[in-house]
Write a protein that binds this DNA or RNA. Sequence first.
DNA 1: ATCGCCTATCGTCGATTGACGAACAATAAG
DNA 2: CTTATTGTTCGTCAATCGACGATAGGCGAT
Lengths: 107, 107
Amino acid sequence: MVTDDTLAELAKSLAHPARLRILRVLLATPGCIGGEIVEAVGLAQSTVSEHLRILKAAGIITGEIDGPRICYALSPDALAPLGAFLASLTPPAEGACCLPAGKDNRT
Amino acid sequence: MVTDDTLAELAKSLAHPARLRILRVLLATPGCIGGEIVEAVGLAQSTVSEHLRILKAAGIITGEIDGPRICYALSPDALAPLGAFLASLTPPAEGACCLPAGKDNRT
DNA sequence: ATCGCCTATCGTCGATTGACGAACAATAAG
DNA sequence: CTTATTGTTCGTCAATCGACGATAGGCGAT
């Protein structure tokens, strides 16, 4: 069971253009890069580091130390709960919302 | 084309437990309800109204006036871009990141 | 017209976030 | 040893968010 809180944390991790951009860069980059992310998002290095930390904390990416630099990689499993939630919403709401026949069906 | 900004807005709309709860309530409720949402989330009426407004602004829900009350319904189409983005991340990253000795799965 | 119910909006407050530069730590190279 | 490179952490500041109470407006019933 995924709690609303967990889902919210996950969504919050995605709720920033810079972080989305980082994910895209990570997805598009065959190898792994460090400072290139900084250039890609166009923010200060420390700021990027902070976003990286947030993504890492959310489990969306992993950082592996490789000598002097760090190798980031996507870890999409962490997003599965969010995807499942989205999928559960996707089926179109079945019927009309309020019955035109107009009888409130309260208990 | 969905911009990072659009996606971020969408994600931000979901990035709150109260709003997720609202969506769940909306999903689970056969008819449509107004003030019941307030009870379900356990926040002040004005606060819930604010969350409703945010969800509406994001296009995730629709509000239809039905006499004295308002009929909210899910509008999951709005979340499609976000779902697509998630799906694009989900496929496992193919390559290792930068481990020379890294022997990982080959799909 | 008035009352009562339901919802939206306003104004405010505290908490959190996002951004930055600066300082610091770890590693590779010379 | 020193130096260069890379990434993290710290402190600060402005902006935004989330919550609330109070208020205003629409609608049906009386």
